[in-house]
């Protein structure tokens, strides 16, 4: 092992190697279960394990039939449509209200800040099952149980804490003199917001929005209680599918969802770097 510093003893070297092996095992435990699904979703047979044909890499062992089913079955396509509609609508509400609130919360004159902050992030703290049954009772009383609007409003409430937290975080180092400079140059508050504040908090707004989006897109407990079959989302279909009869279509759907999450992860990472750069510009 050439890369060890020469002063290390044998015990230290073996401990170092053991530590690396432990870490590799844990990382394997984290990642393997997610990717094991991908090859299985191409199984030609409706099994959830590797068939001898698959292990021998024979073409007969593989097929794209489960993807075909996912993309053609109106039941699944309805779920995709619902998921996207509900997630987009609830994210817009969450982003709009959350950004405004974060702007207010970051002002130094905000009264009762910690109490209000506590209330605003409570949807993140309360266990989902409790939020779900509370909303189930509430929307049933209003006669809205089983409507898209109820699910959208419920998801918006669950998503706002993420927007509030991320946008507040980007506003922490915000330099107020820039707004004063804008005002002194004749910009009214609206123009100053769109030209100065928004570009700086944009990474926070977008990453908060992504959190809100994935919260809704991946959420199933609230949809189960507040929604009905008409509001079925992808997770709803997966949940009922796993509970009743697990078909390999679920693995194909899962593979597609993994691709979505990788895309989200990459865009968040890009945003994070961009945000750091933007705020870095301000410091210099």
């Amino acid at each position: 092992m050439a890369f060890f510093p020469p002063h290390l003893t044998l015990v230290e070297r073996s401990w170092y190697i053991a530590f690396r092996i432990i870490c590799a095992c844990v990382l394997f435990f984290l990642i393997f279960p997610i990717f094991v699904i991908v090859p299985l979703s191409f199984n030609a047979l409706p099994y959830f394990t590797f068939t001898p044909e698959m292990l021998a890499f024979k073409a007969v062992g593989y097929s794209t039939q489960w993807y075909k089913e996912f993309f053609t079955d109106p039941n699944w396509q309805g779920a995709v449509k619902n998921s996207v509609i509900i997630a987009l609508a609830s994210t817009s509400i969450a982003v709009g209200l959350g950004t405004l609130a974060a702007l207010g919360l970051s002002r130094k004159d905000m009264p009762a800040r910690s109490l209000i902050m506590g209330l605003l992030i409570s949807p993140m703290i309360v266990p989902l099952i409790i939020s779900a049954i509370g909303m189930f009772f509430f929307y049933s009383r209003l006669g809205m149980q089983g409507t898209h609007i109820a699910v959208i409003l419920a998801h918006a409430a669950l998503g706002t804490p993420f927007v509030v937290i991320t946008v507040t975080a980007t506003l922490v180092g915000f330099d107020l003199t820039m707004l004063r400079a804008a005002a002194s140059l004749g910009a009214n508050p609206t123009i100053a917001f769109f030209r100065i504040t928004l570009p700086i908090i944009l990474p926070g707004v977008i990453s908060g929005g992504l959190f809100a989006f994935i919260t809704s897109f991946d959420e199933v407990v609230v949809v189960l209680f507040v929604g009905s079959f008409k509001q079925r989302t992808i997770p709803w279909k997966m949940f009922s599918g796993i509970r009743e009869h697990i078909s390999p279509t679920i693995l194909a759907v899962a593979t597609c969802l993994i691709i979505v999450s990788i895309a989200l992860l990459v865009s968040l990472e890009i945003l994070r770097r961009r945000g750091e750069k933007l705020r870095g510009v301000k410091h210099s």
Binding site: L100, A101, L103, G104, F137, F138, A156, T160
Partner: peptide, 26 residues
């Protein structure tokens, strides 16, 4: 203070009605 509060007010109202009220109802 009023200005800051007005910015927070829409979300606060939304959370109070759309989240806290359902929990209290439960």
């Amino acid at each position: 203070k009023r200005k800051a509060f007005l910015l927070v007010a829409p979300l606060l109202a939304f959370i109070l009605v759309g989240f806290c009220l359902p929990i209290l109802d439960m």
